[in-house]
Design a protein around this nucleic acid. Structure first.
Lengths: 229, 229
DNA sequence: GGATCTGCTGTGAGACACCTGAGAGTTAGT
DNA sequence: ACTAACTCTCAGGTGTCTCACAGCAGATCC
């Protein structure tokens, strides 16, 4: 199967680069556009499988772009990027037809997860649930639920995201910096102590119901989740 | 089985796009027309299984279009779209056979539900009632009735639509934005607090007669109805 | 063995999400 | 025309979550 093509539309070069790097690493083929006109051009030239579209663009807003694209027959889903303040006002219609939206600032892990979710749902009409099965840890992404050896655990949003990131990178050591960069929002400017705290929270919730410690510390390096002991 | 074909006839591009996007995602094959003449042309060219027809069109009204289509031998059902004020006047006599009508502004969930209902009724002449059986919650769409563990509940129109949407998407978290976009009318521009309110109303009615809480809150994400506990 | 570094975890402040009751405005029914 | 039901807004209350910090424990190095 050919690589999935993602078109990133945002006027801030920083955001574009951040997304491009992260998504390229996740295995996608990336195109970028800095404004609405470029976006329309890029789409007609090479049809992407999904678009990441900033709602606030210099030349036209995301809705105009969407209209232009849709009326030109473009049918692939769109993931809208919007400032948190705009959300309450003008988000109506953003989650129609497989489309979805994400508020800035977002975390990179969340972007990847959302893209996967959207593509999965639009490609296979009625799909079996999206489940990450990593041995003792099983994550049902549709229901946003986690089980350890079949037993359900209750996690806060951040705990959930952290565990998902660890599990999706099973058997690989992740540094605190990597975790911070992927799980926390890109404008977070606290220190890495927060990662330690959340690992601690997770262990306190997971270890009592698990037959073995799930998250191991690699001193001086980072953390690792291993599928098998 | 081939995809069901839906012809959308409306002069407002926004409405056309909204319907097209939503129905395409629901699994239908979509054609559009902006006026009566185009509609007639589209029908002769490729027979749709159902038509969504705006009653007020620039060139001719829905009554004329219907006449033209019917006299040309077109037999599939028509779902008329009409402004709320025009209902009593113009619609009478139009909804013969399997036809039905829907007032603007409508909710997307309602459109899909109506289309399904009409097609079900016209395809299988002797209709067994259209029932959504989701475990403890059972919704009889023909009778517009809801039972919890066999016991009937009395719901307001909005409560009914909200519950139906949750139940039709069992075991999947729905964000407040998704709920707002699908259950509320497309021109609603209040905030998502209304969803919280109606979830609260539903719980107050459902939980006293149910053996378990039916609608669960996924903090920071949305709401979910689970078939099994 | 003692000094130092790294990671762990309890405490607490502030922010945030959610729930719910009260009430205004509207619609529908008698 | 009156009453009841329904929709929607708003604000207070509550519990949870996030994050910083600091003291402690264990590992590492000399």
């Amino acid at each position: 199967m050919a690589k999935t093509r993602v078109l990133i539309v945002d006027d801030e070069p920083n955001i574009r680069d951040l997304l491009a790097t992260s998504l390229r690493f996740a295995g996608y083929e990336i195109q970028s556009a800095a404004n609405g006109a470029q976006a329309v051009a890029a789409v007609t030239e090479s049809e992407p499988d999904i678009i990441l579209l900033d709602v606030m663009l210099p030349d036209m807003n995301g809705f105009s772009v969407t209209k232009k694209l849709r009326s030109a027959g473009f049918q692939a889903p769109i993931l809208f990027l919007t400032a948190r303040d705009d959300v309450e006002d003008k988000i109506t219609g953003l989650t129609v037809g497989g489309d979805d939206y994400l508020t800035k600032p977002f975390s990179l892990d969340e972007v990847v997860a959302r893209i996967q979710a959207i593509l999965r749902r639009t490609k296979t009409a009625d799909a079996e649930p999206s489940i990450i099965d990593a041995g003792v840890v099983v994550i049902n992404q549709d229901a946003h639920e986690v089980t350890i050896e079949g037993k359900p655990v209750d996690l806060s949003p951040t705990e959930y995201k952290l565990l998902r990131f660890l599990v999706m990178n099973s058997d690989r050591v992740l540094t605190k910096a990597q975790i911070l960069d992927h799980v926390w929002e890109y404008d977070f400017n606290g220190d890495m102590g927060i990662v330690e705290s959340y690992v601690s929270y997770l262990r306190k919730k997971l270890d009592p119901i698990s037959s073995r410690p799930l998250i191991q510390t690699k001193r001086g390096v980072g953390y690792i989740y291993k599928k098998l002991d």
